[in-house]
Design a binder for these strands. Sequence first.
DNA 1: CTGTTAGCGCCTTCAG
DNA 2: CTGAAGGCGCTAACAG
Lengths: 334, 334
Amino acid sequence: MRDVADDAGVSVGTVSNVLNRPGKVSPDTVARVQASIERLGFVRNDAARQLRAGRSRTIGLVVLDLRNPFFTEVARGAEERAGEHGLSVLVANSDEKQERETLLLDLFEEQRMFGVLVTPVAESMARLARMRDHGIPTVLVDRESHDPTFASVAVDDHEGGRIAAAHLLETGRRRIAFVGGPVSIRQVSDRLAGAQSAVAAAGGALEFLGTDALTVDEGRRAGRRILERDAAVRPDAIFAANDLIALGVLQSLVMTGSVHVPDDIALIGYDDIDFSAAAVIPLSSVRQPATLIGSTAVDLLLELQSGGAPSRGHIVFRPELVVRDSTRPVGDTS
Amino acid sequence: MRDVADDAGVSVGTVSNVLNRPGKVSPDTVARVQASIERLGFVRNDAARQLRAGRSRTIGLVVLDLRNPFFTEVARGAEERAGEHGLSVLVANSDEKQERETLLLDLFEEQRMFGVLVTPVAESMARLARMRDHGIPTVLVDRESHDPTFASVAVDDHEGGRIAAAHLLETGRRRIAFVGGPVSIRQVSDRLAGAQSAVAAAGGALEFLGTDALTVDEGRRAGRRILERDAAVRPDAIFAANDLIALGVLQSLVMTGSVHVPDDIALIGYDDIDFSAAAVIPLSSVRQPATLIGSTAVDLLLELQSGGAPSRGHIVFRPELVVRDSTRPVGDTS
DNA sequence: CTGTTAGCGCCTTCAG
DNA sequence: CTGAAGGCGCTAACAG
């Protein structure tokens, strides 16, 4: 900045003004300074800037899995809304690991981010409370906060699980299995609980098939495990914790050719990602308004930032059932 | 930090030492200081830290489209390798827009990132050169650098386009269309050129159907445009610039029921994302080693960082043809 | 082993 | 409208 000032024949204060309040400097001084900036290739040092300002213009977003299109849609929604306010969004991936999440939250806190959006792995409330108490606005994403002091935007996963299972029951399935995990992830346990409540209400029972992560690959593995069983003891319907799992299961089942979806086994996923409609057997799913979740989370952040408590601290969207071929009623060949 | 020092009854220098070189401080002082840090909930201010150090421990990654699983795989590869070296990766989305890319590069440069990995939208070489000249190691990702002074890790897109088109020709197709765009994206123009060279060598011609972006949605739109044509003047094979486009086209074609893939129209994509194998008609594609690209890019960054020129500045991987049902030869019902 | 201190680069008064 | 100066929080020297 000193160099620019010298080059333009002005003082550093003036350069700073040109950068931050061009209106307060005479037009031709502005021009001269900008020419120098250009010529010297000067780039403001954000670290120093932040050090002074105390806060950055960047929002940090921590997601469970960057490979899950649901989260990239959330990111998109956040990016768009943030962009409207001159803020940038940087996305980081906790990979469903508490340890990585802590690392990233530390990073964001050390960087004194403008705000942080997190889909927490599990019980990180204490960690998050500290962040918030240090003055970094924090919004929980895709996670209902039971702590009233936390802002959150979520979808009712219990309800989503319930409608998925209810749908399978309505189409005549009785031996329903839930595939997904780990249950330490709230989304998983809520969807499972919702499904259980629906199945229990119908007097049935739900089988639980755990996975180590919510990935296509884990889904394939789970599918293979089901195929190893005797046909008589296989489920006649599967509710997968998300579409990635569902698509993996579907790949396994279809690849053998011996199992027909939906006649032998019906399948429903969760999230309704773009790819589900294009699957071998178009996949039924439970849709969540992903982009809206992202943009709403940024809205909450801005409210937290610029005032005290947001007007509506806990936003909960309703999930929506999307029926496709993978859950066609048995015998229905339409 | 002052507060922590006072609380622990030591000086700020000692606190700094505890944080950065615990070995140089007596064990019980360390313990005392850490207790104070804990109690006061102290979090180091990274802005100040960087200001002093001149550089951060974070790698910035700018991708063209976060919704494209290819890029999230690249991100994963980068994250993993970076993690091994105590570095974090923050991902940002240029959305194929020059303007957003510039904004993000400015952000990363202002933040004096440890290094930056970019898949440039188009001709941003000047912008990137400045970044590099300012001492921020920069690696081009998924983009061959013709400028020898730039490190890059890429896949030979021309070759990929060639083998895709050659494959379609081998299976007996003659009226081949390329769907994708904008051509200002190097990946697109290279794949197109490669395909053209193969088609030309066979004495044919390639039809070009442009799209505004490489998304599932644009693919659907392109598919609809093809359906509007008289069946006689439709292509008998489509090479899509990437799998997202391909899956979109596939959805359009299949939804009507009037067109059969691959008999009426064969279809091949690019990237071989996880979802392609699970498509209605399992999709043929050209595979790129996405994770490897990401980790290799970080390797190059580390070499640039810690020495002058990397041993192998321009790494080019070879793409690989993956054949599935969507390009089965006409009449082959196996 | 611990304490003191000089900046890192920028922004914002404040007096000219 | 300009110029000088203080300080944001931290680290690395250096002195004790």
